[in-house]
């Protein structure tokens, strides 16, 4: 009985430690870093971040239609701006939490050269890209290919993922030899984790600013404000950088 009450007390205590909870909608490309950040956020502040991952456009539709998200980490900067304009985000709460980097990647080692010349050779079956209409990394891909004057040449080999996760999946399973994906997907602790890659230099496309915002539903929730502050802190920044993002 004594033990049982001790268990209850510790349960209550841990519930007390999780002072708050915040519902977060996270862009698919930020999945891995955000999981790590959320763990440290819980340790450091006691607040719990409940994460949902998905495509930015879909989150937009859900948020506008009353989804219970309190913080939104988008894959672009236009969607949070639009949400703020339409009154779904707390004015002035927007911030750039990461700047995305585009990478040409293959699951095969030594397949992609350090300068991306393989695009000119054309010796690959398919080129997996994110849907340029909906995914910022897809739009950056098209911009890059235009600058390289290769768009017309490689377009017949396009296969499109609906979001950056699916774009990676096509390459990862070997169905496409090559893909333009987010560096964060294949980058950890300062290096490419597997396969071969060409990191696309930033001057080939407009910077991929990934903005976050506190949503109207999160207004007044201390955990939401704490998470936004935490993402701007040094600890989170170090994590974000270690996954291959730039910071503004």
């Amino acid at each position: 009985m004594k033990r049982l009450s001790a268990l209850f007390i510790s349960l209550l205590a841990s519930a007390g430690l999780h002072a708050g909870e915040v519902q977060v909608a996270v862009a698919a490309n930020f999945t891995a870093p955000m999981q790590q950040i959320a763990t440290e956020f819980a340790k450091d502040t006691g607040h719990k971040a409940v994460l949902s991952f998905g495509a930015t456009g879909k989150f937009y539709a859900q948020i506008v239609n009353g989804a219970p998200f309190e913080v939104f980490l988008a894959a672009d900067d236009t969607t949070p701006a639009r949400l703020e304009k339409e009154g779904h985000a707390v004015p002035g709460s927007r911030f750039t939490y990461a700047v995305g980097k585009l990478v040409l990647w293959s699951a095969k080692p030594d397949f992609v050269d350090a300068r991306g010349e393989i695009l000119k050779d054309g010796k690959f079956n398919k080129l997996s890209i994110a849907n340029p209409k909906t995914a910022p990394y897809g739009a950056a891909t098209i911009e890059t290919l235009k600058k390289l004057q290769l768009l017309a040449a490689v377009q017949p080999k396009f296969v499109q993922g609906e979001n950056i996760s699916q774009t990676l999946q096509f390459v990862f399973t070997g169905n496409a030899d090559l893909g333009f994906i987010a560096l964060s997907q294949v980058f950890k602790d300062g290096k490419i984790t597997e396969g071969s890659a060409w990191i696309v230099p930033g001057y080939y496309h407009e910077p991929i600013h990934q903005d976050g915002a506190i949503l109207a539903k999160g207004k007044g929730n201390p955990a939401a404000a704490a998470l936004a502050a935490y993402l701007k802190g040094d600890k989170a920044k170090a994590v974000i950088k270690s996954f291959g993002y730039d910071l503004r």
């Binding site: 456009g57 539709a61 849907n131 909906t134 609906e162």
Partner: peptide
């Protein structure tokens, strides 16, 4: 349809 929705 999914594309249209995603693209708003």
């Amino acid at each position: 349809i999914y594309d249209h929705v995603e693209a708003m």
